[in-house]
Design a protein around this nucleic acid. Structure first.
Length: 221
DNA sequence: CCCTGATTCGC
DNA sequence: GCGAATCAGG
């Protein structure tokens, strides 16, 4: 793929509107993330918040500390790099007033639509990405109305020490509820369900031994 | 490890 | 000019 005017324009818009290089590359298609970044730099679009911290740029008084890292490949290039010897090279970029991110912006600033993204959402400039703080509307919390098929049934919230909590149906089913009868004192269930929950221990002789499984048979839980 | 952008350098 | 490889950080 070549960089046609259209593609360059798209790249520029997306780049300036804050899309990541990956997103741009995906949108354009046929190019890699690196290609996008490389092109963007060649176009002079750089200077965006990068995960890589900018140079220390300590305030001019202490040793500049020229990074003792050994350069594996010494450049022929001497020092034509305009990489500001002055402190804070990135912040000095006159392009976007992005340093005002923490400052409350004047209300006169209205969002500037930069482009229309896939799906129709409107992209905005990096400086305009201050989403309005949604005001918490004062409202009273109203208890949710239980669905009608649970109406009159004993729900989880209705359970207490005195009512039978024997499940009726299965959790997740629309009409799942609990027995709700008066409890058998000292037990979590009513008399009827206690009879199902607690089986009398049979005398040893009357106990039916578990059927022997064939060797190697399937495990049963 | 995923992601990000920056930089380098052979083509 | 291009972009893969690499770097460096989140």
């Amino acid at each position: 793929m070549s960089w046609t005017d259209e593609r360059i324009e798209k790249l520029t818009k997306m780049w300036e509107s804050g899309s990541t290089a990956s997103q741009i590359a995906e949108e354009l298609g046929g190019v890699s993330r690196n290609a996008v970044i490389g092109k963007a730099h060649r176009l002079g679009l750089k200077a965006r918040p990068s995960p890589v911290k900018e140079k220390p740029a300590k305030v001019a008084d202490e040793a500049p500390k020229p990074k003792p890292k050994v350069d594996p490949k010494p450049k022929v290039e001497a020092a034509p790099r305009p990489a500001a010897p002055a402190p804070a090279p990135r912040a000095a970029a006159p392009a976007q007033p992005q340093q005002a991110a923490q400052q409350p912006l004047p209300p006169s600033r209205h969002p500037r639509i930069v482009s229309v993204g896939p799906g129709g959402f409107l992209r905005q400039g990096p400086g305009d990405q201050q989403p309005p703080i949604p005001p918490a509307p004062p409202r009273r919390l109203v208890p949710a109305k239980p669905s009608t098929d649970i109406e009159g049934k004993t729900s989880l919230l209705d359970l207490n020490e005195r009512i039978c909590r024997w499940p009726m149906g299965h959790p997740g089913e629309p009409d799942f509820h609990f027995c709700g009868d008066k409890v058998n004192p000292g037990f979590p269930y009513c008399v009827e369900h206690c009879g199902r929950a607690y089986q009398a221990q049979l005398p040893r002789g009357a106990r039916r031994p578990p059927p022997p499984l064939p060797f190697g048979g399937p495990r049963v839980r």
